[in-house]
């Protein structure tokens, strides 16, 4: 595509063909919900189409599209948080500590539990694990998408993984179970 302010249906088709998988996967891990991920993917591409005439090619197309997906997902997260806020006030917070032995740590560690733990991380940590860890986006591009410095990407990725480990560890599992039950 050139720097024209107009685009054709073929342009949109080809963007969709190339990037829909990346966008969908990003949204899936961010929301942990297939249906939400599909909706967010569609919303992202609608925004891409609208913003395409103003895209200035200073970043890669992929970085630009994932940035839009990120903003869309964060908006979704905020909307959901507002909706969730009032019912949360009425939930009791019982903490159950199961105290599993170390050897059993990974017995429960199937994808569902790890993805649930991922979803319980704060959005910034979730983003850096999805982009760097799962989607293997380079540090430079992750920094560009998240609008961070490269050093912050490195440090926060390390912290995010540690936090994920700690949520899945036996001593924290009670708290985690509580979070999941909400």
């Amino acid at each position: 595509m050139g720097r024209d302010t107009r685009y054709s249906i073929e342009d949109i088709d080809s963007l969709c063909e190339i990037y829909y998988r990346d966008v969908y996967q990003y949204c899936l891990y961010f929301t942990n919900n297939k249906s939400d991920a599909e909706d967010l993917t569609q919303e992202t591409f609608m925004k891409v189409m609208k913003a395409l005439p103003t895209f200035n090619h200073q970043s890669k197309v992929k970085t630009w599209i994932i940035s839009i997906a990120k903003n869309t997902a964060i908006d979704h997260y905020r909307r959901k948080k507002i909706v969730k806020f009032i019912p949360d006030l009425f939930l009791s917070k019982e903490i159950t500590k199961e105290g599993l032995p170390e050897s059993e740590l990974y017995m429960k560690e199937d994808w569902q539990e790890v993805v649930d733990a991922l979803t319980s991380l704060k959005p910034a940590y979730r983003n850096v694990i999805i982009l760097r860890g799962i989607q293997e986006v380079s540090i430079k591009e992750t920094a560009e998408i998240l609008n961070w410095k490269e050093s912050k990407v490195r440090v926060d990725y390390h912290r995010a993984i540690q936090q994920l480990q700690s949520i899945l560890s036996p001593t924290e599992r009670g708290i985690y179970s509580d979070a999941k039950s909400k």
Partner: peptide, 20 residues
């Protein structure tokens, strides 16, 4: 690495052709 591998095992990871 193991955590990341487990995350990649998400059964809905691949979008369907229908969705595309």
């Amino acid at each position: 690495e193991r955590l990341i591998t487990i995350l990649r095992e998400h059964p809905d990871r691949e979008p369907t052709t229908d969705m595309k």
